[in-house]
Design a protein around this nucleic acid. Structure first.
Length: 105
DNA sequence: AAAGTGACGCATT
DNA sequence: TAATGCGCCACTT
């Protein structure tokens, strides 16, 4: 079990129709497991490297609710479609409505 | 060991 | 929205 797997486990827990942020996820590790230092940047790096469809990467956005410009499954457009299909609302082309869809782990 | 890289975060312009 | 700059951590070369 390394930090990557822990990130995946956390991402898999995000419920349908909700989104979490890179910062929030990394912050949870800092609280629950002080030995493992994880930065928001690492979370993004792990997700980008990941290509496993089991991990709902599209539910992870940055702290402003902005989706990834280089989404690994087909680009930002694809990520946006997936979120809309789950009921996540968008304020702009690149921003989800965190006020309504932010997942409190 | 050192440097380059990146789906970030935050402040500023 | 976009562009810089600094701080951050793990990975690859």
């Amino acid at each position: 079990m390394n930090f990557k797997d822990q990130v995946f486990e956390q991402v898999k827990r995000i419920p349908k129709g909700k989104v979490a942020t890179y910062g929030q996820i990394s912050n949870q590790f800092k609280i629950l497991n002080l030995k493992i230092k994880i930065d928001a940047r690492i979370v993004g790096w792990v997700l980008h490297a990941n290509k496993d469809p089991k991990v709902p990467c599209h539910r992870v956005v940055d702290r402003n609710g902005r989706i990834a410009p280089n989404f690994a499954f087909g680009g930002a457009e694809e990520q946006r479609r997936r979120l809309l299909a789950e009921g996540v609302k968008f304020n702009d082309k690149m921003h989800v409505d965190l006020k309504l869809c932010f997942w409190q782990g």
